[in-house]
Nucleic acid binder design. Structure first.
Length: 515
DNA sequence: GCGTAAAACT
């Protein structure tokens, strides 16, 4: 049986994938149906948003799944112990690959589906076929996708050695992979090879280099490259501009990014949501939240629809720079557009709204709504968020909500600050709910907070008002025992002719140990 | 003959 023609260099880089070890009889015993020639519809594969399963890998003319290949691939995938020879046999039994093109089709669909190991396994087998320029190209893109540009580069080297002329796309893919990893030197090496063999770069190629330069902070060089591109016969596109704009934004030069936007507009390029998002990013990085808002207006005016990233960036940026009111507006807009808001951002919005509502009472409602939504979505409210929301409930006289949240936060295991307890106690006392206030006080002691004179004073004052001197005295005693002198003292009052002297009960009560 | 490039938070 003839074997795949393998050049020595290939043998090293591609075919050294170590084969699998022991046998799997059950699979071999399966009577597999004879294999039909199948046609892959690439468009279909792409639009059907491939899952990582190989069931969508090999489709027939009508776009329905061809079960023969599916079975084979699944079997090979499932078995980590199948030997190459056996896999070859299965493939042969099913008709094998008639042409290298057949093989390439399968290979590319595997790569598209991120089935790299399976693709390599199949590549390591022997067929009566010689790899062609496409096979090599697919291998290069495979290793690029695996983020292994070094191996990809060596394959490209072999390709050249074997007299194949790689396409621009192949070079570009490799350059891009090096650039993404910040290996500009390597990327330029590949770029040079292109020049040597007379493969002309496209705007794609330049865009990758631009992105790479910006990624490693070499914005000046990126800008110079842009100038050179403009001088050349290549036409910069939106990607070109966006890449350099992003570079400027990342180093806090969003004004220059904006200039580039104007330039792009003059060239007839229509900025899209990514372009705008890039600018938003720059503005918020630099602390120009209001410019961000202006840009949003401009963006909408130009019929560019904000996406989830736009809103998240805006929300995050506005909160970062304390623009709570604007942030709240954006948040509502997001909900109107059915965008989910990230839990952490919501938590920081909640905190911002609560803090802001100290000055602007009308924001309390917004804060409550955010809190309720977070609860209904089971999103995490951090300890500070809870303290603030309890404070907000207090200041909005939402006593039940305040109590509920206080109990909840204790139940979760956080220990709110004494200030928070005092706050709740204050509002409860104001509303005359001294019994509930006392329960809160007990809870406060239970979680180990040592009360200052404030809660004592609040409670004693209210107990005095309600003519409950015994409890007031009791508390007074507890206060003194713990070294705190409340501002209010239990009040003596008259019933008929009798004078109650709280002092008489002070002594025994103050001896009570509090635990 | 098939394929190549983009933005935010965490």
């Amino acid at each position: 049986m003839p074997f795949l023609i393998i050049s020595p260099s290939q043998q090293h880089s591609i075919f050294s994938i170590s084969p699998l070890i022991s046998t799997v009889q059950p699979l071999l015993n399966n009577t597999l149906k004879p294999l039909h020639r199948t046609q892959i519809d690439f468009a279909l594969i792409k639009t059907q948003s491939l899952t990582k399963q190989s069931c969508n890998l090999y489709l027939d003319n009508k776009g329905t799944v061809n079960s023969q290949w599916q079975d084979i691939l699944e079997a090979i995938k499932a078995s980590s112990t199948l030997q190459n020879l056996e896999i070859s046999r299965i493939i042969e039994q099913n008709g094998g690959f008639k042409t290298i093109s057949d093989f390439n089709h399968l290979l590319i669909s595997l790569v598209l589906a991120d089935e790299f190991e399976l693709a390599l396994k199949l590549s390591s087998l022997s067929y009566a076929l010689a790899p062609d320029v496409n096979t090599y190209s697919i291998w290069v893109s495979l290793y690029c996708k695996k983020n292994d540009p070094e191996t990809a580069k060596s394959i490209l080297g072999n390709m050249l050695k074997d007299g194949f002329q790689p396409k621009v796309a192949t070079f570009t893919t490799l350059i891009n992979t090096f650039c993404k990893g910040g290996k500009l030197q390597k990327a330029y090496e590949v770029f040079d090879v292109m020049g040597q063999i007379g493969c002309e770069p496209t705007i794609y190629t330049y865009n990758c280099l631009l992105k790479g330069l910006c990624f490693v902070g070499r914005v000046e060089e990126a800008y110079e490259l842009l100038l050179n591109i403009k001088k050349s016969n290549k036409k910069p596109d939106l990607y070109t501009y966006t890449a350099v704009m992003d570079g400027f934004c990342k180093v806090g030069r969003s004004n220059e990014a904006l200039e580039l936007l104007e330039e792009a507009l003059e060239m007839g390029l229509i900025p899209n949501v990514v372009t705008y998002n890039t600018l938003f990013n720059g503005y918020f990085k630099e602390g120009r939240p209001l410019d961000g808002i202006k840009l949003l207006k401009k963006m909408k005016k130009q019929n560019c629809v904000p996406d989830h990233i736009t809103y998240s960036t805006l929300l995050h940026g506005l909160l970062k720079w304390g623009k709570i009111r604007a942030a709240s507006k954006i948040y509502k807009e997001m909900l109107n557009h059915d965008f989910e808001v990230d839990g952490r951002i919501m938590n920081s919005l909640l905190r911002g709204l609560c803090r802001q509502s100290r000055k602007e009472k009308e924001m309390l409602k917004d804060a409550y709504q955010v809190f309720e939504r977070m609860q209904s979505r089971m999103l995490v409210v951090d300890p500070v968020g809870y303290e603030l929301v309890i404070e907000a409930f207090c200041s909005g006289k939402e006593l039940d909500k305040a109590l509920e949240s206080l109990y909840e936060v204790v139940r979760i295991g956080y220990s709110p600050k004494a200030f928070t307890f005092s706050n709740v106690i204050r509002v409860l006392c104001l509303e005359g709910k001294v019994d509930k206030a006392l329960l809160v006080f007990i809870l406060m002691l239970k979680v180990g907070k040592s009360p200052s004179s404030v809660p004592f004073s609040l409670l004693i004052n209210e107990l005095n008002q309600q003519r409950k001197p015994l409890t007031a005295c009791y508390l007074y005693g507890v206060a003194l025992k713990s070294g705190v002198v409340p501002r209010n003292k239990p009040e003596v009052y008259m019933r008929g002719n009798e004078v109650f002297n709280p002092g008489s009960v002070l002594i025994p009560l103050s001896l009570c140990a509090f635990s």
